[in-house]
Computed example of a mutant assay.
Amino acid sequence: MNDQAPESHPAEQQAAPAPGGVTRHIADSIRARILAGGLKSDERLPTEDELAETFGVSRPTIREALKRLAAQHLIRSKRGPGGGVFVNRPSLEQTRESVVGMMALLSSMGSFSLVDIAEVRHDLGMVCLRYAIQRRSNDDLAAMESQLLLQEDASLSDTEFCAADVGFHRAIAGAAGNSVMSFVMQVLLDALMPPANMVVFKFRDREKIAAYHRRILLAVHARNPRAGEEAFTELMDYLRARYAEAQDWRRRRDGDERAG
């Protein structure tokens, strides 16, 4: 087949007006088979020619569909003898990075308000903290302490302080001892905390943040759920107030820019 001048297929012509087109339809069909277990991890997919015949499209269209699946870490290519396209098993890190990227993009576009972010952080973070207080190890305490010591360094830049802030709460998530909770919390923290922090940093007191974190760490160390919940609630109440200030400031600024 001449790839430079691919033939036109009825399926491609009919699907072109639809959102995403036939390429998306093919990718979604293969993805659904993978998620349903019809295609197992490390199983080789049919060849491009076979897929093209199955879907009634050209090979370039199949390649575009496979690129979509590769971008989702659902398939991988292998060259040479015994090569081909195989079903991939995405690692937790790959999946986390993919979800974090999409959530961070939505956040940057204003899809999530700072107040909503604080509310979700409070509710999920409280559950995570309760687990951490029960299950934390000495290594978990050391990880939290290292991030807190960074925050208490007055010479730290705002960007570095934000990173240490995220790192502290990531350490709590890791101490929870629940892989699902840790995954969800780390996605939330990595996706939504950095942009929120960089908006609110003008309105918060770094020493107060570090002091709240110190109280949380002491409660986790002592396995004291009441003290931990009190400190965490006060921290989130403080942040909600700062987020509200930041959003009011941003609305006034945007209004002045439009008026100008």
Rank of each mutant, 00 (worst) to 15 (best):
A18S: 13
E53A: 15
L114H: 04
V180K: 12
Y238N: 06
D254H: 09
G255K: 06
A118I: 08
D28K: 12
A222N: 11
M181C: 13
N178L: 08
H9D: 06
S182T: 07
L39W: 12
G83C: 06
L141W: 00
L69M: 04
A259Y: 06
R89H: 08
I216A: 01
S98P: 06
Q13P: 02
N178F: 04
V187Q: 11
S113W: 15
A191S: 14
A65P: 00
F55T: 01
G38H: 03
F232C: 09
L51D: 05
E145Y: 02
A176M: 05
T95Q: 13
E50T: 05
V115I: 14
E50D: 09
M198K: 05
P195W: 05
T54M: 10
R68H: 10
L149H: 06
M193P: 01
R79V: 12
M126G: 12
A210H: 01
Q14C: 09
K67S: 08
D248K: 10
L35S: 13
E234H: 07
I209F: 05
F86A: 00
T23N: 12
S157C: 01
Q147Y: 01
G260R: 09
V100K: 04
F112I: 14
A70R: 07
A32V: 01
D42K: 07
M1N: 08
V127K: 12
Y212V: 01
V85Q: 10
